[in-house]
Amino acid sequence: MKALPVIKKTAVAILTALFVSFLTYGLLYISPGDPAELLLTEKMGSMGVQKEVVQRYAEQLGLNKGFLAMYKDWFVDMLHGDLGTSYKTGNPVLSDFLSRLGCSAQLALLSTSISLVLGVGLGLLSARKRNGVIDRVTRFFSAISLSVPSFWLAILFLWVFAMKLGWFPIADYQGIKSLILPAVVMGVTGCASLIRVTRSGVLDNLSEGYVVTARARGLNDRQVFVGHILKNVLLPVVTMVTSNLIAHVGGSVIIENIFSLPGVGNFLLRALRSKDFPVILGFVFLMGMIVVVLTTIADLLYLAIDPRVRQGMYEKK
């Protein structure tokens, strides 16, 4: 792979990250509620919080400077790996995040693998035997999975498989065993779009001239399929998988909550309820960074897969 497009993509990623950090900080800054006051109220009860005390407390926390100065402080600290400490737990935000990342990352990887296998597999099968039994069943399945909300399916699964059948733990976290059910829920709801992209990708390509050429050269169906069509379908599949992964970064909040998983999303939800600003700020920022990294990886994958994307970047230059 040529170096230039890679450098370009990385530069764009860094700029995006800067913008995300600014936006996160800015949005939290203008959101209603004075953190110092809220904190004091929480500590001492709603009575007896005096203006001067609040002000002194704010000074102590460094909350009384201008926006840009505060942003700069936070940014410099962030560069040193310091995202502040949680008002609630007193731990550094970063270590709180990292200790919960494992669970969320496992969930995201597991559920994305499930939708990848299900989505691409069913998509290919239904495209190969168009309008056959498998195709009809798959299309019905994907229509259902598109219209069923994940929280509804989550509650249903929890009720059937964990409560009634007792196959899975309900509240206590037992590692991978606790992740299977939520991963299946997310995988099943996420695979519909992949089925569609794969199926229509294959069908669109079937009528392309290069497929006729390939068949005319005496290649058999399998060679045409594996050697020619698959690589052309890969690009939209990569797009879809990344957007699934990205959706999981934020979307797993609800699922983590329903299944009481000790993940990033659940922790963030609790921080939101208790207005733990450093945690909210740090977590939203870090999740934004994950999205930036994932998108950049996807972009680099495009470059590796499709020469036309590479060409496009040179032409725009």
Binding site: E208, G209, Y210, V212, T213, A214, R215, A216, R217, G218, H228, K231, N232, I305, D306, P307, R308
Partner: peptide, 21 residues
């Protein structure tokens, strides 16, 4: 027969080659 006994050259060379290979 295809390719070995009868060769076929597609109309429109731009579409006749696989763009990603």
């Amino acid at each position: 027969v295809r390719g070995k006994r009868i060769a076929y050259i597609n109309q429109n060379p731009t579409e006749a080659l696989n763009p990603v290979l």
